[in-house]
Amino acid sequence: MVLVYHTKGAKKFALSYDTNIPRQAGLSGSSAIICAALSCLLDFYNVRHLIKVEIRPNIILDAEKELGIVAGLQDRVAQVYGGLVYMDFGKEHMDTLGHGVYTPLDINLLPPLHLIYADNPSDSGKVHSTVRQRWLDGEEFIISSMEEVARLALDGRKALLDKNYRELARLMNRNFDLRRQMFGDDVIGTVNIKMVEAARSVGAAAKFTGSGGAVVALCPDGEAQVLLLEKACRDAGFLVQRIQVAPSPLPLTEGNPPF
């Protein structure tokens, strides 16, 4: 696909893209394209220094909203900052700043992680979710569960800083369990559930990479457990890849220090 833009008296450009991100695998391929396009435009017009890094995820999200895509800020923050980043979306920050507080962390804090995904995940989780409306309606179970999810993120940051990977594994499993309770199996989808179950069958921890379609797994028992994970996923018809986390492309002057 090629997008051509021209305005009289201004620079003109042609923008094309290609991607190797699996489609419909919950890996935010569409927002990654928009994020890359924004980065190109910032440099093309030499305005990168005028657009604060903290608000770039909002710009990407606004573009997706214009396309009718329902989404949140998390994936866009990860794409803008790159590497490993802790996100605090506390109400006070969102109300006063218009965005969260994003803290880059050293990628060397991460344990080995693996991505599990299906060749054809499109049959999974087609039922429309009512969770957002239940949140807006003030349902106590949804609000308390979301608050626990936020605490899991805070606890996960501590587990990473302490390199306590067994605790991190426990938190990952709890994250998925909460999501399953809130959304229900019809929304989560059979394929998604089977991916998590394949990881758990060998004692690995697993949670969604995003809202579904792919799963990130942690093997706290090391490489022997990784071999078991690969076999379990292969037997279940899923693909497994070792995750390689690239460091943040942002210069330190654009964001926070790396710790």
Rank of each mutant, 00 (worst) to 15 (best):
A150H: 04
L113A: 07
H128F: 05
A153E: 05
M172T: 08
V77Y: 02
G98K: 00
I34R: 07
L250V: 03
G72W: 01
E147C: 03
N120G: 06
I60L: 07
V240L: 06
G213I: 06
P111L: 10
P220M: 11
T103M: 00
P104T: 11
S248F: 00
A37E: 11
A236N: 09
C35N: 14
F238W: 04
A118I: 06
I51F: 05
F141E: 15
I60Y: 03
V70Q: 12
Q244Y: 10
P112G: 10
G212W: 08
I59H: 04
R157K: 15
N173R: 02
D43P: 01
Q241F: 00
S16C: 12
V215C: 01
A232K: 04
H128Y: 08
E197C: 07
L105V: 09
V226W: 08
E223C: 01
M146L: 14
G98S: 01
N192R: 05
Q181D: 15
A224R: 12
D185G: 09
V240P: 06
G212S: 13
F141N: 11
I193V: 15
A205L: 05
C233V: 07
M94Y: 00
A206H: 03
Y86A: 14
V47D: 11
I55T: 09
L110K: 01
M1I: 13
A10N: 13
S145Q: 10
L171Q: 06
K91N: 07
G213W: 02
P111T: 11
